[in-house]
Nucleic acid binder design. Sequence first.
DNA 1: CGCCAGGTTAGAG
DNA 2: CTCTAACATGGC
Length: 291
Amino acid sequence: MTIPVPREFSFSECLTFLLRSPREILHRVEGGVVRKAIGVEREPILVEIQERNNALDVHHYPGGITESQRKFIGQYIAQWFDLETDLKSFYALARKDALLGGLVKQYHGYRIVGQPDLHESLTWAILGQQINLGFAYTLKQRFVEQYGHSLEHGGQRYFLFPEPSTIARLAPEQLLPLQFSRQKARYVVEVARAFHEGRLSTESIRQLPFEDAKTELRKIKGIGNWTANYALMKTFRFPQAFPAEDAGLHNAIRNLKGMRAKPTIEQVRTLFKKYKGWEAYATLYFWRSLG
DNA sequence: CGCCAGGTTAGAG
DNA sequence: CTCTAACATGGC
């Protein structure tokens, strides 16, 4: 199938992001092609994505799929690469901005490569809380290999993110051998249980306005402002979502402004007033500046 | 060894 | 409401 891409879109910039960790377990990038297993009605289907003639060219295995599976895959990929967002007005704003001007020129077309599944995005955010990114990827790799379904293609194994029902059954202690802290283990199981017991779903949060969605997410233990905003940005594409507490964002702002110390959260909020309505994309390009 | 890392919670003031 | 300690462990 072929998926058209918007004007301000750079597949190679998105690939750079997808390549950032050698320990990434949920997709592979080789020679301009991304391969990933997508769970369609709980069955893993392998998709191969590459850019061709200003569109995404998608192949899938097995080849024979139903129309609804096809539709699901198309929507998943469009959400994954955030193809629906029109960046024109963000770029108009950012081009005139001292901090973002160079970044949006240098990384033009870079989009928020997200996680269309809320369970995945919340769990990944919890894994990344308070630890360095490399170790977070190690934890994710162990977690997915241990509990995720998979399929094999071309001599490679492709994993799906674990199902909430699988994780909901665990006692948090069972995650300690993977080197989860007790707190992370508790949070991860708690989030899975919220999905499994129907207290939380991608669809129910998607229908809510931004502030209500944030409030709902924060009711769950382990989800604070940082994690809620991360998910609202990566899963639901709220353009105003951004984690003001984020250490990486603080470092980026310090570097770009030549500050001696990292900005306080209040300074970050003040700075971000000028990006109102585009906080998520401003954050993305600040993160990108970290290299 | 010390400090920091894509924080959150519970509890104190 | 704001502030702080505890949590826990790898990477540099």
